[in-house]
Design a protein around this nucleic acid. Structure first.
Lengths: 350, 350
DNA sequence: CTGTTAGCGCGTTCAA
DNA sequence: TTGAACGCGCTAACAG
């Protein structure tokens, strides 16, 4: 078994066994017209017997198209990105493409190398969630293949992208907290250099302005990168003299860090945040989450990319920007009759 | 921009610009000895100017090795598998391989097609989490490339695999509940046709036998496939006349479904289960989880596979079985306030 | 130190 | 209805 590399049967082998030329084998396998039924069957029999599989590499070389698209995400362990990847794969499969996946592990400096590698492997296009704010290497990649950005917009680049309603979602969720009577809402954000960080802060701010409140800068923490930094920041805020009465978190990991901090400190503030996550509905915390379909971001990105691939040489459409809608969902909502969560937050039991 | 397909510069183009032959370009790019420094520089300059990238497809064809390995998982949206994928990629990258990823979406009947596709793309080896119990197609795949199984053992196949301590972990977690005085523990399991399902039930049972208790068949539910079927099954159990005093769940999805059922029904039974998950530490429920490093499964699988690839033609080692250790972690226990349980255990290399 | 020849496995083009 | 020749881009083997 494991007839090794450099060993697999070729079309010639199949042809010899079926007593036809390799050319005929090729025709049979691609369902080309003009092959007699008799030879078809002989060929299929030979294919079966040898366990022959067409060599897609040779095919790609000849046809000039690898049938692969590349996806680069920053962190596959985050459900957001694994859903996105599934969305990409769903559409890719539908159009006969395979997905070559790379994970930058949040390290922006690894991204160029990953992209070069994908290009070397002849991906026909790329979908990238850029890890950093520098996108020079993406411009370089665009010399070779079309590139679609996901979750973050192009910076100084002319290309398609798929975004979520960052501003709108953040504004809406924040507005919910404000409507509940909170005026001291802490903001726990990822680095402002990231588009989503900046945009979600903008939404947070706008919601305040709309009700004539100025956010307190002492309650704003940016540059959080994961659950544990968010946890620490939350604990600090809770220890402050003039502590917040609610929290807004810009992504799922930050929300989870904040929730862990609340749990450990025994406090129970309402939390709003971007991204829904597993078990959000059973925490028994008043939660206001900006929910959206992460798969859909991947699907849309794949569609934009494949659209460019199919319209190939001709009339490249102007760069497009697609937005995936968000929706606010509330769990353990304070508005219900149940209990104390309705109004002023309780004092933490320490 | 986007110099399209069939358009990229070739080594001849680079050579022409640098006034050397394509062969010399090839040598420079592969760092072969015996090229004058002067020509090196000319070549690099030309490469730069043209934005040339070596065509890995042509290379693969010539060299007989695609530099890719294929990974097939059942559900990338499950953190267990995305971690596994990251582990595979980590090791693959280390050895200069890229990862072609397919998701069978739990549909066993799609798996053969996915595998064929990967083989067509000349992956040099496969890591598969088999979706079903039939593995005939895997035997077929092994005619072409080495195959390593992950999370589930081979059935009627002679090949490497990486498993977790399914039996041991389930037994240990169950023993914790029994030691706490529970004698009516419900079992919420995935389909027994799956290895993990059967093995974890075996562990559950063994723990009971060790303390001289016979599990009550009325408390055993198998064939649960996701969070919502688990939720329903749990609600049923809670509604029974002689209800359980604790629950054992065979994976993260099932645990989550059970927890949701408990939450909705207002009950608060201790839950034990396989797989740790996000926020398990802040649920305020007595939780006993079998934790392990999912990345490590991927890493080990990749190592086994690459080991076979490197020892290639020679002396194929007998099929190996590697086991990743588990560890029981407990949350929400009234006693402790420790916190270090946030991360899965690091496992020693085997 | 550098170039030429040949062929990896396949499919397009043209001829039979 | 079938086959032969040629080349996709690259590199091992052999010149020079």
């Amino acid at each position: 078994m494991t007839a090794r590399r450099a060993g697999g049967p070729t079309m010639h082998d199949v042809g010899r066994l079926a007593q036809v030329s390799a050319m005929t084998v090729s025709r049979v396998l691609k369902n080309a017209p003009g092959v007699s039924e008799a030879t078809r069957e002989k060929v299929f029999a030979a294919v079966e017997e040898l366990g022959y599989r067409r060599n897609q590499t040779a095919r790609s070389l000849r046809l000039g198209g690898s049938g692969m698209i590349g996806l680069v995400v920053t962190n596959l362990a985050n459900p957001f990105y694994s859903r996105l990847a599934l969305g990409v794969q769903e559409v890719a499969t539908e159009y006969g493409f395979r997905m070559l996946l790379s994970n930058s592990a949040e390290q922006a400096d690894r991204e160029p190398g990953l992209i070069d590698g994908l290009i070397d492997h002849q991906v026909e296009g790329l979908i990238v969630v850029p890890a950093g704010s520098r996108q020079q290497h993406l411009a370089a990649a665009m010399r070779h293949v079309p590139v679609v950005l996901a979750a973050r917009p192009p910076a100084g680049l002319d290309t398609d992208c798929v975004l979520v309603e960052d501003f709108h979602g953040a504004r809406e969720a924040t507005a919910c907290l404000l409507a509940d009577g909170h005026s001291r809402i802490a903001f726990l954000g990822n680095p402002p250099a990231l588009y989503t960080g900046a945009e979600r802060l903008r939404g947070f701010w706008a919601a305040h302005e709309e009700v004539g409140i100025e956010p307190d800068n002492a309650l704003i923490r940016q540059g959080l990168t994961d659950s544990s930094t968010a946890e620490r920041a939350t604990l600090e805020l809770l220890g402050q003299a003039d502590r917040p009465t609610a929290l807004f978190c810009t992504n799922n990991r930050i929300s989870q860090g904040a929730i862990r901090a609340l749990y450990k400190s025994g406090a129970s503030l309402p939390v709003a945040g971007f991204d829904d996550f597993d078990l959000s509905d059973v925490l028994g915390l008043p939660l206001t989450l900006v929910s959206y379909d992460a798969d859909e971001i991947g699907r849309q990105a794949a569609r934009l990319l494949i659209d460019r691939l199919e319209h190939d040489e001709e009339a490249p459409p102007a760069s497009r920007r697609v937005t995936v809608p968000t929706r606010v969902v509330r769990y353990g909502a304070p508005s219900t009759d149940t209990d104390d969560a309705a109004h002023p937050p309780r004092t933490p039991r320490v």
